[in-house]
């Protein structure tokens, strides 16, 4: 994180704008204030919390069998990754997440466009969607076990169920909020309907779709892990319960750390991709 510090002066996103007059008071501020006002402060807080974890366990501030020091967890993480155990487990989870996510989002986008473009579809589907989206996904898992049994199909369905409605709604609001001038432009050039759908409605709705995809991503991962806990025989949710029952707390925390890292990386990757896909959705001021 030392590399973040020199960036601060030229950074426009975080921190305060550098005004000529602001230099003198800044110099007068205490060292702590100066450090907190950099981008590194966020990372420093993470490190501080991890150190606190380490200290509470190592110096016995927390007296518990179930509170291993952070360093021990990292060692376990390293060991369990090398042994292949954790990779298999996280792989199972991500494979379920991916399939459920794609299924639910794909369906949601199609339903969303149908609602936005055809009155009939909206009148028919909207009440059902409004009711279904209020059902907590975790509540449908137990009855679904009767249908799917334990295994991937159940979990995939649960993930798809969780994301399809928010995805349909954000797509519908994106396609519905299209500026009428775009449809008029399409009309004046006599563009066929399928072409307008692809080249006008879809891109116009894209910022909304991307926002929906981003929220759905986190949701999909949560629902995967929860359904693995409720009805699992594989994946990280199941692994967490197994290690907990077996009192392998260090392994349990290692799995949680890995899940956190993976989720964080996926989100970062998604943000980069999103920035590329809707790079045009900018204004002059924003650059």
């Amino acid at each position: 994180m030392a590399m973040v510090l020199p960036n601060h002066a030229s950074a426009t996103g975080g921190g305060k704008p550098t005004r000529p007059g602001a230099v003198a008071p800044a110099a007068k501020r205490g060292l702590v204030a100066q450090i907190l006002d950099t981008r590194a402060s966020g990372i420093l807080l993470v490190i501080a919390l991890l150190l606190l974890w380490e200290a509470t366990a190592r110096f016995g501030w927390v007296q518990s069998q179930n509170w291993p020091p952070f360093s021990a967890v990292m060692v376990a993480l390293y060991r369990n990754i090398l042994s292949g155990e954790l990779l298999a487990v996280i792989g199972q989870t991500l494979w379920v997440t991916l399939r459920g996510y794609l299924l639910g989002c794909g369906l949601g986008i199609v339903i969303g466009f149908a609602i936005a473009m055809w009155r009939m579809a909206r009148l028919t589907l909207e009440p059902t969607i409004d009711i279904m989206r209020t059902i907590p996904t975790t509540a449908v898992i137990p009855p679904l076990i009767f249908v799917f049994g334990l295994g991937d199909p159940l979990k995939i369905f649960a993930v798809a169920f969780a994301v399809v409605f928010p995805m349909a709604l954000s797509t519908a609001s994106g396609a519905g909020a299209i500026d009428p001038i775009y449809t008029q432009v399409a009309r004046t050039f006599g563009l066929p309907r399928s072409y307008v759908l692809r080249r006008v409605y879809f891109p116009a709705a894209l910022p909304f779709i991307m926002a929906g995809l981003r929220t759905s991503l986190g949701l999909a991962l949560i629902v995967t892990v929860v359904s693995e806990m409720i009805a699992g025989n594989s994946g990280i949710g199941f692994y967490l319960f197994q290690t907990q029952y077996a009192m392998r707390v260090t392994d349990m925390y290692a799995a949680i750390i890995l899940l956190t890292i993976v989720a964080y990386l996926i989100n970062r990757l998604f943000l980069t991709w999103e920035g590329r896909v809707i790079h045009w959705a900018r204004t002059r001021e924003a650059t």
Binding site: V185, F189, R199, P203, I278, W280, A281
Partner: peptide
Amino acid sequence: VYLFQQYSKSLLPWMNVEENVMFSFTHR
């Protein structure tokens, strides 16, 4: 073809200049 008063809104922001021009005739 109708040329709109709100030019800034009538260009499609997700297409570059070339794509904006080409989309008016390539389908036809």
